[in-house]
Amino acid sequence: MPKPKEAFEETFPCDFYTPAELLEPDLLYTIPEIARLLQGLDPEATVDPDTEAVLIDWAVPWVIVNGEDLVIAEPLEENGPGYYGVAPHALEDDGAH
């Protein structure tokens, strides 16, 4: 159910990092690792499963929206996760790294 803005003490801008700002250019990341980075955590940080689910809910749309600035690699194992990284052209455009 929607809530009135007055019900909240404070609101914040909904700004997200670009792939070039968030990801190291020579690394590939899984969705859960990207989710942690978006929250300012280490990509290998331990989080409880409920928190991880919420973080992933934020990360998946970020990957979709930023898809043109990302590359993807096939899983290293048959049932393993895919890996995402910043596309070379995004580094050139952003100059973040």
Rank of each mutant, 00 (worst) to 15 (best):
F12Q: 08
A90Y: 00
D48R: 06
E6G: 11
G67N: 12
D57M: 15
H89L: 01
V86F: 06
T11L: 06
M1R: 14
E6V: 12
D94M: 00
H89N: 06
E52T: 09
E21Q: 12
P61L: 13
L55N: 14
V60T: 15
T30R: 10
E6D: 13
C14V: 01
E9K: 15
L28F: 12
E10C: 03
K5I: 09
Q39S: 12
G95Q: 04
D26R: 06
D93C: 00
E6F: 04
P61C: 13
T18Y: 00
D94G: 02
A96Q: 04
E92F: 00
W62N: 06
D26N: 08
P88V: 02
A73Q: 13
L76H: 10
N79H: 12
R36H: 07
L23W: 12
L55A: 11
L37F: 07
A53G: 15
D42A: 07
E24K: 09
P81T: 01
P61E: 11
G95M: 02
L38G: 04
D15R: 13
L37C: 03
Y84C: 04
P32G: 11
I31P: 12
A7H: 14
P32W: 01
P25N: 09
V54L: 15
P81K: 04
F16P: 00
L76D: 15
G67Y: 03
A96E: 10
G82V: 06
T11K: 09
K3W: 12
E21V: 01
A35V: 03
P49T: 07
L22C: 01
